[in-house]
């Protein structure tokens, strides 16, 4: 379960590259892969261990034409996928970073 107020950072060995407008995120050799669009790529860049999810939702809503409830739903789903594939790790909890 991905918590709204958790803070995440990219896993140490996760690497990414943009190919034809999509961002490929992978743990090399581990079978852990995610391919995402422009918004996902933007979120990926924000997963630096300094921003809780609400802050990331704010940033995405500022950068893209999207309603906040929809943005939060999609971002939580994306973060859940990244966690499942061990491409990010939680580094703190709580909304004090906001």
């Amino acid at each position: 379960m991905t918590g709204v107020c958790e803070v995440y950072q990219r896993a140490e060995r996760a690497v990414s590259r943009v190919v034809d407008g999509e961002t490929v995120i992978v743990q090399p050799g581990q079978g852990m892969v995610s391919i995402t669009n422009e918004v996902g790529s933007y979120v990926w860049d924000l997963l630096d261990g300094n921003r809780a999810v609400p802050r990331i939702v704010d940033d995405v809503c500022d950068a893209f034409d999207v309603e906040r409830p929809r943005a939060q739903e999609d971002i939580l789903a994306f973060i859940g996928e990244l966690r499942t594939h061990q491409l990010i790790v939680p580094c703190a909890t709580g909304c004090s970073h906001d």
């Binding site: 590259r17 190919v19 034809d20 050799g29 079978g31 995610s34």
Partner: peptide, 16 residues
């Protein structure tokens, strides 16, 4: 190409 890159990177490496 993005899927090719992702799937090639996902296969095991000798010494990652």
């Amino acid at each position: 190409k993005s899927l090719a890159l992702a799937s090639l990177m996902a296969v095991p490496f000798e010494d990652t």
